[in-house]
């Protein structure tokens, strides 16, 4: 399935893009992450949470095809 993936904050310094659409073959979030770690070597060293359809999810959550966002630590306020 095709999934839109968004990157924020310091993660964009690794990806050099803020958004991309990838053809994903896996079933779970962690499978998508493995694909991203292969594409962006240093991503694995960074602290981030994953949101699917704008809700934080665990790595064992099933991919639904909704938008995925990789969110580094929050710094609001």
């Amino acid at each position: 399935m095709q999934i839109i993936i968004k990157y924020f904050g310091q993660l964009t310094e690794i990806t050099h893009i803020e958004e991309e659409t990838l053809e994903v073959s896996g079933t779970y979030i962690y499978e998508l992450l493995e694909t991203l770690y292969r594409k962006y070597n240093t991503l694995k060293t960074k602290d981030f949470q994953v949101a699917q359809n704008q809700e934080l999810v665990s790595k064992e959550t099933k991919l639904t095809g909704a938008e995925i966002a990789l969110l580094p630590p929050f710094a609001g306020g």
Partner: peptide
């Protein structure tokens, strides 16, 4: 409210 904003809202600061 302020504590919830700090913890839950995806805002990033450079």
């Amino acid at each position: 409210i302020v504590e919830a904003i700090k913890a839950d809202v995806p805002v990033f600061g450079k």
